Simulated scan of single mutants.
Amino acid sequence: MQRLIRRQRDRDRGAVAVWVALLMVPFLIASALAIDIAAANADRQRLQTGADAAALAIAQDCARRVQCTPDARTATARAMATANDPLVDPADAVVTRFGSGQVQVRTSSERDYLFAPVLGQEQVSIEAEAAAMWGYPTGGPAVMPFAFSWCELAVQAGLPPIRDASNRIIGIDVPEAGVTRTVLAAKKSDSGCTGPSGNVVPGGFGWLEPTEGCGETVTDIDGWAPSDPGNSPPNGCKPQDFSKWVGQTVFLPVFETATGQGNNAQYGIFGYVAFRLEAYYFAGQYVTPDRPCSGSERCMRGTFLRFADLDTDFEYSADGPQLGATVVQLLLPEEN
């Protein structure tokens, strides 16, 4: 009896060995194909990273009005693709769409399979696409409760207007390298930008009524922002609220018109400027060690920039006022 059981076991072992041998071939083929597929997916991920980087880089350049010619866009796309080359074959990139504040980029490469040729598949073409959009802020939360006068920017900062084909002012021409200026608050008698009281609106120095605390001041172009009267920062603000903005680039509203006076004053918002704050003097504790002005004056010094922000809560439009501040974001690519 034991001899019969032993023989049966031997036969079972032989059958298992045969099945293992038979199944080993498709198992090895599947494993080999999995390696090829995983490698192709890794390449596709690198191509996608290159496409995303290319779309964002081109959008930033065009938003700042630098290196936005067709040749420059192609060169930027290829540079970003090369920086994210797949592990085997080099990547190429083309700009497939451009216009109306949008750009779309396609990156591509070829991968030679290692194991798939046994099934007649020598290589695979891999592609990835990305799109980005840029525009000019039309509304959102400015972190500093202050608005520049359009006239003051033109006179004090020396920033000439940008006009469209019908001679309508659509922005200001901020130099590529930016321009550093000390800008006095609304009270400035020799600028030609103020009324008889020395202010744009009586009792107002360009301060806005904060939406919450001393933080976000939500405004919109073609809308009215309430003034916070007086020559001191608004109630709820603390010295540290201003000191933390030194060295930071912020979007600040620019007003074109004003109405009313005191608590009833309002500023008509025209657009938003990108401003890197360097020093200020608002009297009392609201002053930096390097005072850009003194006495009864109120001022801030900083640099007006062509600046593209990838992380912002501002709404934007390709047709918005062009004041140097721009917003850039990735989009879902359009189908060809």
Rank of each mutant, 00 (worst) to 15 (best):
W150Y: 00
C151R: 05
E152I: 07
E152C: 09
Q156L: 10
G158S: 13
L159D: 00
P161Y: 02
P161Q: 03
P161V: 03
I162Q: 14
I162H: 13
R163T: 15
R163E: 13
A165G: 14
A165T: 09
A165S: 10
A165E: 08
S166A: 15
N167P: 02
N167G: 01
N167K: 07
R168K: 14
R168I: 14
I172V: 13
D173G: 08
V174F: 12
P175V: 01
E176T: 01
E176A: 01
A177W: 13
A177I: 10
A177H: 10
G178M: 02
V179G: 09
T180H: 03
R181L: 06
R181S: 07
V183F: 12
A185P: 12
K187W: 15
K187A: 14
S189Q: 10
D190E: 12
D190P: 08
S191Y: 00
C193F: 00
C193M: 02
G195D: 12
G195P: 04
P196N: 15
S197Q: 06
G198R: 10
N199P: 02
N199M: 14
N199Q: 15
V201M: 00
F205Q: 02
L208H: 09
E209D: 13
E209S: 15
E212R: 12
C214R: 10
G215L: 04
E216S: 07
T217V: 08
T217P: 04
T217N: 09
V218L: 07
D220L: 05
I221T: 02
D222R: 09
D222F: 03
G223Y: 13
W224N: 00
P226M: 01
P226T: 06
P226W: 00
S227G: 02
S227I: 02
S227D: 02
S227C: 02
D228Q: 12
D228R: 09
D228W: 10
D228N: 10
